[in-house]
C-alpha cells in the first residue's frame, strides 16, 4: 500500500520533534475559525432547508396555496387548527403506541442487556448474532408474515398489535445500546450485593436498573421515536380508521391530490416534534450516561 512510507515515517518524525502537549492539539492545515463557522452554518442551512420549509409552509394561510411566501411574515395557525381537528385522534394513537412500545421494549431489552453484558452464559454470541441478522431482514418481509398471523390472531387494527410490531424497531437497538452502556458498570457492586445474599432479580431491580438510568432513558427516547415514526406496520397492519397512527394519516393526505398544503405541513411538523425534542434532550443523556461511569 502507498501508505506504508508514511506509517513508517511517523515514529522517526515523532522522535525528531518534541511531543506537543495534548491541550495544543490544533488541527493541521488551514487556520480554522469564524470563516469555517460561516461555512458550517451555510452547509447546515442547506441541509435543514426542508425542515424550515415545512415549518414555513405550515404557517401559511389555509386553502388553495399556490405560491407560498419564503417567510411566514403573517403567521397563520389555521393549518394547525385543521391538522389537530383531522389528525388529533391519530396523534393520540401514535402517542399511545409509542409509549407502549417503550414499555415493552425496555422490559424485554433491559434484562437481556444486563445478561449480555455481565453474565458469561453460553449462547450470548448467538443472541448478538441474531440481533445483527435481524437488521438485515427487510420490514416488508416481517409485515408480510405478520399480516397473515395477525389476521388469524385478531390483532389487526389493535393498539396492542401495533405496539408489539413497532417494538421490532426498538428492541434490537435497545439491547445493543443498554448493553454498551452497562458495560462500564462495575461488577464489584453486583458481586457485593450477591455476597450479601441478594437474588438475581433483586440485584437487577435495586442496583442494576437505578445505576443504568441514563442508558434506559437514552434507549427509551430512541425507542419512542422509532415507534412514533413507524410507517410500514401502520400501513400494513391496520385496515380501518379505528387505529390509525399519524404517519398513516399523513400518508393518506399526500396520497391524494393535495390542495391544502398548510394543514399537511402542520401535521408533518406535529409528527416531527418528538424528533426535535429527542435531538435536544438525548444528547445530554448519551453524554451523561457515559461520562458518569455509573459508580464512583
Amino acid at each position: 500500500m502507498s501508505t506504508v512510507s508514511i506509517r513508517e515515517g511517523t515514529p522517526t518524525a515523532g522522535r525528531l520533534r518534541p511531543r506537543k502537549p495534548v491541550t495544543e492539539r490544533v488541527p493541521v492545515g488551514r487556520p480554522s475559525g469564524l470563516p469555517n463557522t460561516a461555512l458550517g452554518i451555510l452547509f447546515l442551512a442547506i441541509m435543514l432547508f426542508p425542515v424550515y420549509w415545512m415549518v414555513n409552509a405550515s404557517l401559511q394561510p389555509n386553502g388553495t396555496t399556490i405560491q407560498a411566501t419564503w417567510f411566514p411574515i403573517h403567521p397563520d395557525f389555521s393549518g394547525y387548527a385543521t391538522a389537530l381537528t383531522q389528525q388529533g385522534q391519530n396523534l393520540g394513537t401514535s402517542l399511545i403506541v409509542a409509549v407502549g412500545s417503550v414499555v415493552v421494549s425496555l422490559a424485554i431489552a433491559a434484562p437481556a442487556a444486563y445478561a449480555l453484558s455481565h453474565f458469561k452464559v453460553r449462547g450470548t454470541n448467538i443472541v448478538l448474532f441474531g440481533i445483527l441478522i435481524s437488521q438485515m431482514i427487510p420490514g416488508i418481509v416481517v409485515a408480510n408474515a405478520l399480516y397473515t398471523a395477525y389476521n388469524d390472531l385478531g390483532l389487526l387494527n389493535t393498539i396492542g398489535g401495533l405496539i408489539l410490531a413497532d417494538s421490532s424497531h426498538g428492541i434490537p437497538f435497545a439491547i445493543l445500546i443498554i448493553r454498551a452502556l452497562m458495560g462500564s458498570m462495575q461488577s464489584s457492586i453486583i458481586e457485593a450485593a450477591r455476597v450479601d445474599g441478594a437474588g438475581h432479580v433483586r440485584v437487577f431491580w435495586s442496583i442494576v436498573l437505578p445505576v443504568s438510568r441514563n442508558a434506559l432513558i437514552t434507549a427509551g427516547l430512541f425507542t419512542f421515536l422509532f415507534a412514533w415514526s413507524d410507517f410500514l406496520f401502520a400501513l400494513t397492519l391496520t385496515t380501518t380508521d379505528a387505529v390509525r397512527p399519524v404517519t398513516l394519516g399523513l400518508y393518506q393526505y399526500i396520497g391524494s391530490y393535495v390542495t391544502d398544503w398548510s394543514s399537511v405541513m402542520a401535521t408533518a411538523v406535529l409528527a416531527s416534534l418528538p424528533a426535535v425534542v429527542l435531538l435536544l434532550v438525548a444528547q445530554k443523556f448519551v453524554a451523561a450516561g457515559t461520562a458518569s461511569g455509573a459508580v464512583k
Partner: peptide
C-alpha cells in the same frame, strides 16, 4: 474544530431523526 462546530454537527442529525413520512411529505411539496 471551529466555534460552534459541535452544535452544528448535532443539529445536522435532524433530517435523520424526522419520521420518514414527514420528510416525504415536505419533499413532495
Amino acid at each position: 474544530r471551529f466555534p460552534l462546530s459541535g452544535l452544528l454537527r448535532s443539529l445536522l442529525l435532524l433530517p435523520w431523526l424526522l419520521p420518514l413520512i414527514a420528510s416525504g411529505a415536505v419533499w413532495k411539496w
